[in-house]
């Protein structure tokens, strides 16, 4: 389905249908965690979620119409932000806890067992707490998550016709998801004057999600380099993409 033919209501319905399933860790390590066992649980979960994330992106109307190059660039740029946004949504009703999965809920203090992770847990808890204050709604969350994907990378300019066509489609898609979010807010029943303030409040939080993901990426890379945890498969590919870009 092309987004050009979709109104905001239909677009948001597609986002609801695109939602990935809740991923279970299945093999919860015994407590207390060690640095290695916690990192192993978190990376195992991330690897499983990444596979579903690709399925989710493909179901966003218009995403597969972008060039394969753009699809890859967007996903490799945003994957940790998208994982973190999902984590925040799952944790929104549980102050002080991070619900990584239905079978992996961590208290803030459990982060103390992994060097450097407490700072990231605190960033995630603070942003989640702000979403809670704003009473983030499920459909707003879906629009924000799609925005993270579509706004994740500023591409270099290409002369190739195919690529400029793809970036035109991408800008159109971003406008569609923005219209979707505006539509969701307008249907929430808040007074018209407060709607633009709410939109701004929600969008401002995305810079905090991006900041947390940079910190998370640095942390995961250092854990991998110190051999605290082995990183395999899709997660390794996605992590390497960031490493190569920084180099």
């Amino acid at each position: 389905v092309l987004p050009a033919s979709l109104g905001p209501e239909q677009f948001v319905l597609c986002l609801i249908e695109a939602e990935p399933p809740n991923v279970l860790l299945m093999s919860r390590p015994s407590k207390p965690f060690t640095e290695a066992s916690m990192m192993m649980s978190l990376t195992k979960l991330a690897d499983k979620e990444l596979v579903h994330m690709i399925g989710w992106a493909k179901k966003i109307p218009g995403f597969v119409e972008l060039s394969l190059y753009d699809q890859v660039r967007l996903l490799e740029s945003c994957w940790l932000e998208v994982l973190m946004m999902g984590l925040m949504w799952r944790s929104i009703d549980y102050p002080g806890k991070l619900i990584f999965a239905p079978d992996l809920a961590l208290d803030r203090d459990e982060g103390k067992c992994v060097e450097g992770i407490l700072e990231i847990f605190d960033m995630l808890l603070a942003t989640t707490s702000r979403f809670r204050e704003l009473k983030l709604q499920h459909r707003e969350y879906l629009c924000l998550k799609a925005m993270i994907l579509l706004n994740s990378s500023m591409f270099p300019f290409f002369n190739a016709v195919e690529e400029s066509d793809s970036s035109r489609k991408l800008h159109h898609l971003l406008n569609t998801v923005t219209d979707g979010l505006i539509w969701v807010i307008s249907k929430s029943g808040i007074p018209f004057r407060q709607q633009s303030t709410r939109l701004a409040n929600l969008l401002m939080l995305l810079s905090h999600v991006r900041h947390a993901s940079y910190k998370g990426m640095e942390h995961l890379l250092s854990m991998k380099c110190k051999n605290v945890v082995p990183v395999y498969d899709l997660l390794l590919e996605m992590l390497n993409a960031h490493t190569l870009r920084e180099q």
Binding site: I54, K58, L68, L75, L234, E237
Partner: peptide, 23 residues
């Protein structure tokens, strides 16, 4: 390295079937 080289799994998942087919 090219995008294809560094994203073998991602490319496959983008071009092939649903996640349930892969896992």
């Amino acid at each position: 390295s090219s995008l294809t080289e560094r994203h073998k799994i991602l490319h496959r998942l983008l071009q092939e079937g649903s996640p349930s087919d892969i896992s």
